[in-house]
Each structure stands twice: as C-alpha cells, then as structure tokens.
Design a protein around this nucleic acid. Structure first.
Lengths: 241, 241
DNA sequence: TTCCTTACGTGGGGCAGCGTACATACCCTG
DNA sequence: CAGGGTATGTACGCTGCCCCACGTAAGGAA
C-alpha cells in the first residue's frame, strides 16, 4: 500500500491544473522531514515553502520562559510557510516535524512568483489558509473551554487524519509540549482512554483502537475544524457548480 | 479633535494608492456600527466587507452550549470579512460590535473584483490577514498559559489601541464573554487593577489611568501582537527600501 | 544478562477559576 | 424621589491542573 513518490501525494499540488503543476515541477525538490527537525524558527528567515507528501509538521509558539503551545498541524493536505505569499516573510512561531515524512519544497521566489500570477494556486492557497485560520481559532477556543482529555482526543484525531496508519510514534512528553500542559496530565488522560479501550500505548507508540469512540469523547472543536477543512478544500472544479 | 469623515479614517483604505481608492470610492458606503450589532453570524452569508472608521468589532466563537471566546478584535487598522477574498465566503465565527462607531462597507462582488486585480489592495489585505493570524495564535497561547488578570490587561490594551480616548464603555459581563471567563473573575481582577491605580471604573465605564503600568503587568502576548502588527502594516512604499 | 537511559505511573499539597448564591449600590425612569 | 433593573462585590465549596518528588518498568547497548 506504498504510494508512488510524486508531488501529487500533497493534496494542494494534486489539486493544481496540469499546466500550473508542470510550471512548478522543475523547481520542486523532494526533501526528508526528519522527526524533530525545525523547519522555521520563530521570526526566522523562511527560504522555502514545504508541501508535505507524508508526515506531520506542527506550528508551535514558544514563550519566553520556554513553555509552548501548538497552534495548528499541517500534513499532506496543506503547506508550511504561508507567511511567504501573505507578504510577511516570517511569523513569530516555530515549525517542527512532529511525525517524520517527506515534503516537496519550493524556493521563496518561485512560490511568490506563481502566487502573484493570480491563478489556481493563489485561490487554492488562500482557501487553505482560511482552513488553517479555522484550526487556529478552534485551538484558542479549545484551550479556553475544554478539559485536557478532550484536547488530547482532538489532538489524536487531527494527527490520525494526517497519518496512513492507526499508529502514532510520539511520547507523552511531546504531546504535553504540543498541548502546552504537563506530561503527568497527559499520562492520566491517556491512561483513562487506554483503560476504556480507545487507545493502546507503550513507550512512545500510540495505537488508536477505536476511532469512533474517540470521536464521541472529543469536544466540538474537532468537528468544526474537520468540516471547514472539507468544505474549503474541495477541488476548484467542484466549486463551479 | 473630531476627525473629518473620510474613508481614510480606516488605515487600510488610507494606505491605498490614490488610483485604487478612487476606483473603490463610488462603492464605499458609510454605515453605523451600533453597539452589540451582529455583523456576521457564524456560518452565515457575508454580503459586505467592513472597513471600520471608528469603533471596535470582535470576532467571537460561540460554542454549542452558549459559552464564547473572542478570537481577535478589529478597529480602524483593519477589516472585517476576510473570508470573502480568502475564498471561503463565510467562517464559523461571529462578528459583533464591541464598541460603537462607523465603517465603510463594500459589496462582496466589488471587493472580490478589486482583490483579483492583484494590485496594492491585495498585498495590503494579505499582510493584514497575517497580522490577524498572529492575533489569533496569540489568543490561543494566552488562553493556555496566562492568568485572567494578564489576559484582562491584554484585552484592555488591545481595545485602547483602537479607541480615541482612555475610556471604554464596557461592562464586566461583556468583558467576561469576550475572554470566555466568569463575570466574577473579571470583577476580581479589575478590582485589583483599580486598587493599584491602573484603571478606574464605574457601571460600564472603564478609564485607563496608567497605561504604562498596564503594559508592565500584561503578558508577552500583547507585545507580540503589537510588534507584528506594526511590522506588517507599515505603508508599502516604506517596504521598497 | 546486566546496566542505564528513557518513558510512564502515582501521590501530596496548592491555586486559579468555576458554579452558585446572595448582597450592595448605581442610575435611569416615571 | 422612589422604585426597579442592572452592574458590581463577596463568599464557599469544588475541580482541574500545576509543581514537585519519587517509583516502576521498558528496551537498547555492552
């Protein structure tokens, strides 16, 4: 069930009209996304945009005291580096590989030029950006109102949507960093989910056993993000109707 | 000190080249923003974009159980309705007038057409959108890590930046709805700020007496948002250098 | 096998904020 | 100037998560 290596593994690239993808092709460079790699540092120069073919990248804000909080996650449905075509060049957040994979990258000048043509890529990236905004706002809401267990469920589901199997390679400490909570809090919540048969884990590997039950326990935030993403990311051709 | 009624009261419109503003002028319609008015409902049709000349609009997410959380605020520095040019047509959040004022609005078709020209307005709106994204991500971080008093300081400062005087017409209940906390929590935090001479309030009117001290007590989130906004919103001419 | 690093489990004390209930006090209206 | 609606103040018990400290166990390396 191994997918062929192709830029079309990324949904945004796959949704481009043939002519536009052809124009980009010579500039697309496949690069690995090793676990833990920092793609952009907060406020740092962004020289490339990345279209993941597999794996997950987290957008993370790190505070002065070192505490962190995940803002959004990006997988093969999206792109990392929106600040380049938005015109800001950089952002105050960090992009880190949360699950290893690979991506197709484009130099900043290339993506900016293609974006400026105002064709399909522009419309696609803007709609994607809006779905990313929804993910960010829902993170804010969830942080305010929902308890750790619900947030953990949301996080697991968002990750699962971006992975090929039911298994996540991820320690509880890393999840805690993403959620911006203590590791012990994750241990307790994960323990309850395991006791209830929703997941099963051992030393940095989490298996989701019952996705349906996970969706029952999660807060509304997950559904909002999912629904908006589905709505905004339908192929442009389907929008004409 | 009354400013002349002009579209240039809005910073985005003011930053447009004369030719572009001229093209939009016949379509700009000045409308009041009465306190409490709902500009967009969650998921509802968005027929106009609004460029506030004065007043403040809150972007608010309202949960199924009625609880709410503010995502971002928009004043004369910005625009309400980014979903129109982003291509999503709508968003899962509500836009409510938090402080009365007035705005210039444009029909959806007009803003979309002007945006599609790919000239100054497009670049301006995209940079503005990025600064809005920063505000949203910082809201998420703040909700996760900072205590109510700090969040209140942040909220007061963000509001103050968008108002002409040091006075906010705002009850503690409304602030609580924005922050997504209990009214009593706001009462306590505001009481401390008043006892320490930073603010002074009575029945729905808050006077900021010592802005400097407010900036000492606020968390880093305010500075991040402010800095990004200042960085992204400099006139395009200044960017050429 | 043994060791040692790393991941997970557990417990005690503390605090911020919640839900609830009710008291006070302002200010508009009649 | 009296009444009533609304804004603010205060209190109490509860819970979710924090900080801190330590215990247990998995699994790779020698």
């Amino acid at each position: 069930m191994r997918t062929r290596r192709s830029p079309k593994q990324n949904h945004l690239l796959a949704a481009l009209p043939a002519a536009e993808l052809l124009r980009l092709s010579p500039h697309l460079e496949r690069v690995p996304l090793p676990l833990g790699a920092v793609i952009y540092e907060s406020g740092g120069e962004q020289d490339y945009v990345y279209f993941p073919a597999s794996g997950i990248v987290s957008l993370l804000y790190v505070m002065n005291d070192g505490a962190s909080a995940e803002i959004a996650v990006v997988g093969s449905e999206g792109m990392v580096g929106i600040a380049l075509f938005m015109g800001g060049e950089t952002t105050p957040s960090r992009a880190v590989v949360q699950s290893a994979g690979s991506a197709y990258r484009l130099e900043a000048t290339v993506i900016k030029a293609e974006f400026a043509r105002g064709e399909a890529l522009q419309r696609l990236l803007l709609r994607y950006t809006q779905s990313l905004i929804t993910q960010m706002t829902q993170t804010a809401v969830c942080n305010r109102h929902h308890v750790l267990e619900q947030q953990l469920c949301r996080w697991l589901l968002l990750s699962l949507d971006r992975l090929p199997s039911n298994q996540l390679v991820m320690t509880q400490q890393l999840i805690a960093n993403m959620l911006g909570v203590r590791r012990e809090g994750v241990t307790e919540a994960a323990g309850r989910l395991q006791a209830d048969g929703l997941i099963n884990y051992r030393r940095g590997r989490i298996n989701v056993l019952d996705r349906a039950k996970l969706e029952e326990r999660v807060c509304e935030c997950y559904a909002v993000v999912r629904r908006e993403s589905d709505r905004l990311m339908v192929p442009e051709t389907a929008l004409a109707a």
